[in-house]
Simulated scan of single mutants.
Amino acid sequence: MTSLQIRNESDRARVLGHIAGMDITKPKKLAITEVDRSGEQNKALHAALADIAAQVEHAGKKWDVLIWKRLRDAALGCVSCDKPATWAGQWHASHFRSVGSSPEHRFNPLNVHRACSVCNNHLSGNILGYQPELIRRIGLEAVETLLGPSEPKRYTIEDLKAITAEYRAKTRELKRAAA
């Protein structure tokens, strides 16, 4: 099957020449369709999508790794069990609603709390312990908002850069307050 695009008069003449030179002893089928995007538009679209994906990953890493959460919850123990803040093991930033099941809450600070590595990794967040403590910390209404339906977020590159800058500033504020 031959596919030809008509973008200008030169292309039109080439297509008509192709049709004129066809062997018409065998039946042919001609289909004319609208082109959704040009090759250049597709290339630009894919580059923009790749850039947005890279920014989401970057913002997620920066937001996840930022000391902000650790500083915010430094005096609190594990959100899912009774390990005290003085526990010497590894601490994680645990999402109440996972990023996979609820990507709109990826950067929501009410969705992320300090948890021990045992609860976060080995017990998949230990949700049975997480929810009651989360209600105590942020209130029932906020937890119900996290659990309820939410609009999907469509982050732009500018949004993601703003999120990174916002939490960088919050981290500085908490460090100054702790000093």
Rank of each mutant, 00 (worst) to 15 (best):
L110N: 12
G148C: 09
N121V: 06
L123P: 01
C116A: 05
R154C: 12
E151N: 09
R137A: 15
L140S: 10
E141N: 08
P152G: 11
R136N: 08
R137M: 15
H113A: 03
E104N: 08
S117T: 06
L110P: 15
N121T: 13
G139Q: 12
L128F: 06
I138W: 02
L160G: 00
E158R: 13
L134A: 02
H122Y: 00
A115Y: 02
P152V: 07
K161R: 15
N111W: 10
I138Y: 03
L160K: 08
E144R: 12
P109Y: 04
L128R: 05
A165E: 04
V118H: 06
L110S: 12
E104M: 08
E151I: 00
T156P: 15
V143P: 13
N120V: 05
S117E: 06
N120M: 04
K161L: 10
A162G: 07
K161S: 11
A165Y: 05
I135F: 09
P149D: 15
L140A: 15
R154V: 12
Q131R: 12
H113R: 02
S150D: 13
D159S: 06
G148D: 14
A165T: 05
N126G: 04
P103G: 01
H113C: 08
E144Y: 00
C116W: 11
S117Y: 09
Y155L: 11
E104K: 13
E133N: 14
I138V: 11
L110Y: 13
A162F: 06
G129D: 04
I163T: 05
T164E: 01
T145V: 09
S124E: 08
K153D: 02
A165D: 07
H113K: 07
E151C: 08
R168S: 13
H113V: 15
G125D: 04
L134V: 03
L128K: 05
A142F: 12
T145W: 07
L134D: 02
G129A: 09
N108V: 05
E104W: 10
A165K: 01
S117H: 07
P152E: 13
L128P: 03
S150F: 12
R114D: 03
A142T: 11
L160D: 13
Y155I: 06
L140G: 14
P149H: 15
F107P: 15
T164Q: 05
Y167C: 03
Q131T: 01
K161P: 13
Y167L: 14
A115S: 11
N120T: 03
R136Y: 09
R106W: 07
L147G: 08
L140Y: 15
I135K: 02
Y155Q: 14
I138R: 00
H113L: 09
N111Q: 05
R114L: 08
E166V: 13
L160W: 05
L123V: 02
V112E: 00
G129T: 00
C116H: 07
